[in-house]
Amino acid sequence: MTLSITLVVNGDRHDVSLQDARPTLLDVLRDRIGLTGTKKGCDRGQCGACTVLVDGRRVNACLSLALTVDGADITTIEGLATGDDLHPVQSAFVACDGFQCGYCTPGQIMSAVGLIAEGDAGTDPERIREGMSGNICRCAAYPGITAAVLDAQARLADSERTNG
């Protein structure tokens, strides 16, 4: 039995055929579609390395069977920058040294993008730390991560003011 699904990833449509129902969204992104920016740290929803946005919501891609997100609009780390122009959250992570080995970083950044969009954390560092606590960083780049989220919020607010 072959199962066909369609995913819109970073604006591009991908028709994927699966032999069975087992592949997770994470493995489909990495192994079938070839977008390896999203990382696997635990494969069971405990580390956040695989965080992507599914229809705008933060989701652990390792916990979603690909079949269950058929037709969804998915944003991965590869979809944030515009050409060579980094997304403000990406620039902030570089500027604030919000990572060391970089392995958790795609997940951290996607989570930060989601958190900022959710609009709940504001500029309170404590709420940002809570909101980012679904993403483990074994290198413990936490001070930089929190600084980066604050910095990115400021950058985004600035550009909103300028644009609107």
């Binding site: 990495r30 192994d31 070839g34 977008l35 390896t36 920016g37 999203t38 990382k39 696997k40 991965t76 780390i77 590869e78 944030l80 920058a81 980094l86 990406q90 620039s91 992570f93 570089v94 500027a95 040294d97 990572f99 970089g102 392995y103 970083t105 795609p106 950044i109």
Partner: peptide, 21 residues
């Protein structure tokens, strides 16, 4: 200086072993 591998790491283009296909 900020990390020279920073852009690769924040865009998902840094290639870790398991990313090779």
């Amino acid at each position: 200086m900020t990390r020279r591998d920073g852009a690769a790491k924040v865009t998902g283009t840094a290639t870790y072993a398991a990313d090779n296909r």
